[in-house]
């Protein structure tokens, strides 16, 4: 019974927070590409962030990065740097900026922007190969998913 109440309360507060996330076009990056304020005002959930980093249809961060803490998930790529210890080396604001749009931190990087919906060449409708209308484009990750990934990255303290 108590559990139901708690879940209901969580769902409610989640719903309220989701009503007002910062839209991709309104994100304020500082001169170094960092984002000071949370995109949702809600704390990130590191467990969810972990799943997003692994899932091929979501962050698929493992396509390019090796992360020792995620060694139970198969195949870690080598395109980007290994992320062990990144939570100790970078601030929360820096990590939020890098995950939302790494090009603001690393000019010209191959790392995709996960919270961006305009300015693409021939954007597609997911992985169908068909055209998407730019006004229909969703960011690859939602605002809360960005916060969740950042929360997970902050747990990577050793390395």
């Amino acid at each position: 019974m108590r559990l139901t109440i708690i879940t209901a309360a969580l769902a409610l507060s989640g719903g309220l927070a989701m009503a007002n996330p910062v839209a991709p076009g309104d994100v304020a990056f500082d001169d170094y590409g960092a984002i000071e304020a949370s995109l949702t005002g809600q704390p990130g959930n590191p467990d969810n962030g972990r799943e997003i980093m692994i899932a091929r249809g979501k962050g698929n961060c493992l396509a390019c990065h090796e992360v020792t803490a995620l060694k139970d998930a198969p195949f870690h790529g080598e395109v980007g740097p290994m992320l062990d210890g990144i939570g100790a080396n970078r601030t929360e604001a820096e990590l939020r900026g890098i995950v939302a749009n790494a090009k603001k931190t690393f000019e010209g990087t191959v790392m995709p922007a996960f919270y961006k919906t305009s300015g693409f060449v021939r954007p597609g409708d997911g992985y169908t190969g068909k055209a998407a209308k730019e006004e229909d484009l969703m960011p690859i990750l939602t605002a809360q998913e960005i916060e969740d990934v950042v929360a997970f990255l902050l747990t990577l303290q050793d390395g």
Partner: peptide, 8 residues
């Protein structure tokens, strides 16, 4: 090209 989430 499809794998870049593009219109191919």
């Amino acid at each position: 090209i499809r794998d870049t989430r593009a219109e191919t």
